[in-house]
Nucleic acid binder design. Structure first.
Lengths: 197, 197
DNA sequence: CGATCTTGGTAGACACTGTCTACGACGCCT
DNA sequence: AGGCGTCGTAGACAGTGTCTACCAAGATCG
């Protein structure tokens, strides 16, 4: 499922960037610092990435691949029906966003997504289609179409991940645990756990 | 509801920043450019804002005030019951996020929120409490507590605003209208429109 | 009334950033 | 051997945020 790691300086730059964003956060990803960590001069990356944003996009791309791997590994563990799989997916998504904060932030930088580099926006499509399939199987036929529910649910997960990630939701809802919020969101879009199936 | 505009250079800097973020977007808010637009040297802002982030926080603060004004104006129009008010609030929120994109982006910059400057995170609390009250009144007593539902709903609005704003949701769900998505989200958290109340 | 201190702005320096250009080393091919 | 891409280096340039020295005008006070 994962493409083989790229050889040469191009791959080393991406690796250095991934390491850096995990260690220091998204704002530390200056072109020159990445080059420094890869042991080359600041002009070298230009041979492989025309601009700074292209390099960042490649790093974010790697992040989406990691997320896909995590989700795949979670689902491979085996679950009791599509609803349980959805719960697991939601938790894995949130977990990724909260533990890999810098990478998650990078992956959803609007200027990266909007620049259309590397088809970054399209990179999340397979994950979204998986979500749509699960929604379709987890819910009885009635109600709005699955892609709509999946879209709303994805947006909900994304919003929880972000707002919780920087403390706004803790402050607002007065709790210090995400799980109830996550459960409330999933239940809202799919109905309470025990019903379907 | 709005505090009076601040006089002096401090207020002029904020105004220049607000204008700039509306005209050119959030990445254009360099300290020097704001100073230029306010007609002062690049060192002048330092007398009023110790650091660049403090100035940005003050601008974002103004954005939250604008959002609160918009929501208040929307609710003042008069609606038929709390559920209709919630629909109007959700639409106003989304409308703000999509028309004032640069400002919305600035308001939810994590480094601003996390730095705790100006109590920026607390600024959204009144709006959230309003949301919680409406949720409480719009839903029959059963189910999870209102603050939890309000938190999940807020996260959903935020997620829709962001993902839609930069085109990811259009691509994923295959539609080009937000309204169905917004309705699906509100219905999911509060139940279909006709039922309650 | 004159000296002094505070307030609020200017001007220049510094380190750092992303981009661009000139240059050079190296391998490959004919 | 000669030519030619490929790929990295080194330096310049404009722009950034921050810091420091300076200075002009007002207020305060002995």
């Amino acid at each position: 499922m994962n493409e083989e790691p790229e050889a040469g300086l191009r791959g080393r730059l991406i690796d250095a960037g991934v390491e850096l964003v995990h260690a220091e956060g998204a704002q530390a990803l200056s072109l020159r610092e990445i080059a420094r960590r890869a042991g080359v001069s600041h002009g070298a990356p230009r041979r492989h990435f025309p601009t700074h944003l292209d390099l960042l996009s490649a790093i974010a791309h790697q992040g989406f691949a990691d997320l896909a791997d995590r989700v795949a590994a979670t689902l491979a563990a085996g679950h009791d029906g599509p609803r349980a799989e959805l719960d697991a997916l939601a938790r894995a998504y949130l977990d990724f966003a909260l533990t890999r904060r810098g990478m998650y932030e990078l992956m959803f930088r609007h200027d990266l997504l909007e620049s259309g580099r590397l088809g970054l926006r399209e990179t999340s499509l397979p994950l979204f289609e998986l979500l749509t399939r699960l929604v379709d199987r987890a819910r009885p036929g009635a109600g709005p179409e699955p892609s709509l529910v999946a879209g709303a649910l994805w947006a909900n997960l994304h919003g929880i991940a972000q707002l919780w990630g920087w403390g706004s939701l803790q402050l607002a809802s007065g709790t210090d645990a995400v799980e109830p919020l996550l459960r409330a969101a999933v239940d809202a879009h799919l109905g309470p756990a025990g019903l379907a199936r």
